[in-house]
Design a binder for these strands. Sequence first.
DNA 1: ACTTGCATGTAAGTGGTTACATGATTGG
DNA 2: CCAATCATGTAACCACTTACATGCAAGT
Lengths: 182, 182
Amino acid sequence: MNVKTLCLSILYEGEATGYEIRRLCVEGECAYFVEASFGSIYPALARLESEGLVSSRTELQAGKPAKKVYAITAAGRAAFIEQLSAPLADDMFRSPFLLFARFAHILPRELVEERANEFLERMVAGQKKLEDAAAERELSPADNWILNYGRAVMEVAQGHIRSHMHELISLAQAEPRKDAAE
Amino acid sequence: MNVKTLCLSILYEGEATGYEIRRLCVEGECAYFVEASFGSIYPALARLESEGLVSSRTELQAGKPAKKVYAITAAGRAAFIEQLSAPLADDMFRSPFLLFARFAHILPRELVEERANEFLERMVAGQKKLEDAAAERELSPADNWILNYGRAVMEVAQGHIRSHMHELISLAQAEPRKDAAE
DNA sequence: ACTTGCATGTAAGTGGTTACATGATTGG
DNA sequence: CCAATCATGTAACCACTTACATGCAAGT
């Protein structure tokens, strides 16, 4: 799923500026399974417009920079549905934390403990962001479905870390005795 | 976590060829949270060797192409630990399926059903691959820890899909009545 | 006869990220 | 006074993917 398709998916539900699209990707209820930065969104929107899949209108604002509001066209809707009908790419999960965890036994206990706690905190923060985004507006049934999926997965992931992180930490190297050096 | 670090992580546990490293990434017990293709592994190994972090020896084989066996050096071990000690990047999850699912209500029921089933099948296959990889050899305690994490997450994900996919399917557009057209 | 597995590598292309450039307003 | 928010866009860079090139042996 490239950024162009992602933009179409957001514009399918209503007008938006590039700035807003990015905010939705970072803070919205889909933030945990999509991603896009300014550097990819703006060029994507420009290309979509040149292909006639979206149209734009510039809105001047008092005390704020002018904004370019994009809207999906009929051709855009058709193209989006066509893209959704194509075979789906595999979901993907990349975890620097799990790679780190695999080597707990050769790392200092302090470090493993710190990273495990950071990981848990990030997870809690991620889940909170999701719940906040969900609470912000009335969700469609499909949005609710994906939200529940996310909740289910995040809950076990979090619970597992919480109840098993001490096992991982105990695998790590006992802290180097500083007292000898000091 | 770039491919260079990934190669070091595998070589940390023993010698391997580029071909084997890729197999471990695709079929090993870490396959669900790392990824690397030939096109990135070979250049990565060459660079690691030029930096003195790994060494290689060419082994001729009867009836098979010669292979280049890489081994991590002392400098490589040190560099790897240093890389593990750096702040961790965020885990990431990208899901074309969930993006698709968000739009179930505008898609034909047949398609949603097909994709949901495919998704479930892939998940089952992924979990089987993980269990097979785990059964193949004696796992270290850390490897067991990450395996259990993966198991826990995959199990709920799978269970959730299994028991809620029909809800998603029911959101989709009832199939276009072909009888009228035929 | 064809495919799969073993085995290494390159080249072109893609799809992004990061940092920069610009600039007004509001709030701490 | 500084940081953040709003707002758009470009350019340089990077890592990785895909496809290609090569070739032999064993299994189907």
